[in-house]
Simulated scan of single mutants.
Amino acid sequence: MPSAPGPSAQLWLRGLDSRRQTARYRLFVFPHAGAGASSYRLAEHFPDSVEVCSVQLPGRENRFVEPPLLSVQAVVDELAPLISGRSELPFGFFGHSMGALLAFALTHRLRDTGAPLPTRLYLSALRAPHLPDREPLHHLSDADLLARLERSEFAGLDPELQELLLPTVRADLTVCETYEHRNQSPLPCPFTVLGGDRDDSVREPELAAWRRHTSAAFELRMFPGDHLYVRGTEQQIAESIAHTLPVRGRETSPVRG
């Protein structure tokens, strides 16, 4: 049995060992830009045989005073040894938007270092990384950036809270927009790619383009909703994930809400 997580793992991986006695599978969850580990309530929709560990990046929630990281490489440098050190259970990665990019890049790093790989990647609301970049936002002034974000959930926040969170959002946009995709051999992990059918920022063909990045099975699942379709559909997402888990038996079926 692995030792108890150290201070670094406890900071980065919320929920680690929360189901120490019963877990047969571990799902690492990577949130979208500006979000923290508490953004998605997936754990309550899985049975005790699935442990959900949400990644907590610096600059948010209980790590708000820490400066946010500014590149995919910096995030992967921190996470790769933590994940590879906790591979005593089969595991998968679920990432939404920026989180999908982090999950993808981290899997490549694990493969490069010979570490165990996730049994499957669940990549949500992100266009395939080889597609041409859109107009970057991270360099805009605060006023212009706020205006561009007016249609996001960020726009509904109190102005003082917007001002407080804007540096973290800008940092996360920097992470995404400065990522340079390298042509690499496809990953051997199966992919499940998910998206919202009314997401103006990521169209279905851009999601389907992820197929070229895996040499294993691929499926595309669309849900009702926009870019943040995940809010309120956690149970349906959990059902989609449970359907592909490598562990068998009724105990792996999601708990009904």
Results as ranks from 00 to 15, higher is better:
125 A>P: 10
86 R>E: 00
46 F>P: 08
63 R>D: 00
51 E>S: 02
21 Q>F: 05
116 P>E: 03
110 L>N: 03
51 E>Q: 05
72 V>G: 01
125 A>T: 08
16 L>N: 03
60 R>H: 07
118 P>C: 11
119 T>K: 15
91 F>N: 10
37 A>T: 11
145 L>G: 01
144 D>Y: 02
36 G>F: 10
26 R>D: 06
29 V>M: 12
118 P>V: 07
135 E>N: 05
68 P>E: 14
22 T>M: 03
43 A>Q: 15
98 M>L: 14
47 P>S: 15
120 R>N: 11
52 V>K: 06
25 Y>P: 00
58 P>S: 14
137 L>K: 12
72 V>R: 04
88 E>K: 05
35 A>H: 01
12 W>G: 05
74 A>H: 07
109 R>W: 02
81 P>K: 07
35 A>C: 07
138 H>E: 11
90 P>W: 08
68 P>T: 09
22 T>V: 00
15 G>F: 06
30 F>L: 15
66 E>P: 01
65 V>R: 12
74 A>R: 08
32 H>M: 02
113 T>Y: 00
47 P>K: 09
8 S>T: 15
99 G>Q: 07
35 A>G: 05
125 A>S: 14
100 A>W: 10
28 F>I: 13
99 G>L: 07
42 L>Y: 06
14 R>K: 15
64 F>H: 06
121 L>W: 07
111 R>H: 00
27 L>T: 09
142 D>N: 07
92 G>C: 07
48 D>R: 00
122 Y>K: 00
58 P>M: 14
25 Y>T: 05
88 E>H: 14
59 G>K: 10
9 A>D: 08
67 P>A: 14
47 P>V: 04
88 E>S: 11
28 F>M: 13
114 G>F: 12
50 V>I: 11
144 D>F: 04
36 G>C: 06
132 P>F: 13
44 E>R: 15
14 R>H: 09
105 A>N: 05
107 T>A: 15
79 L>W: 10
142 D>M: 02
145 L>F: 01
11 L>Q: 15
70 L>V: 13
104 F>L: 09
64 F>N: 03
72 V>F: 00
138 H>Q: 12
13 L>I: 06
116 P>F: 11
92 G>W: 04
69 L>N: 11
122 Y>W: 13
22 T>F: 00
88 E>F: 08
31 P>T: 01
61 E>A: 08
89 L>A: 04
137 L>S: 08
57 L>G: 03
57 L>E: 09
145 L>E: 06
53 C>R: 04
94 F>L: 13
18 S>Y: 04
119 T>Q: 15
42 L>V: 00
67 P>T: 12
119 T>D: 15
119 T>E: 15
88 E>D: 15
126 L>V: 07
95 G>R: 01
31 P>H: 04
130 H>D: 13
59 G>S: 12
70 L>K: 13
47 P>R: 14
90 P>E: 02
77 D>F: 04
45 H>W: 09
10 Q>H: 05
72 V>K: 07
32 H>I: 01
62 N>V: 06
90 P>D: 02
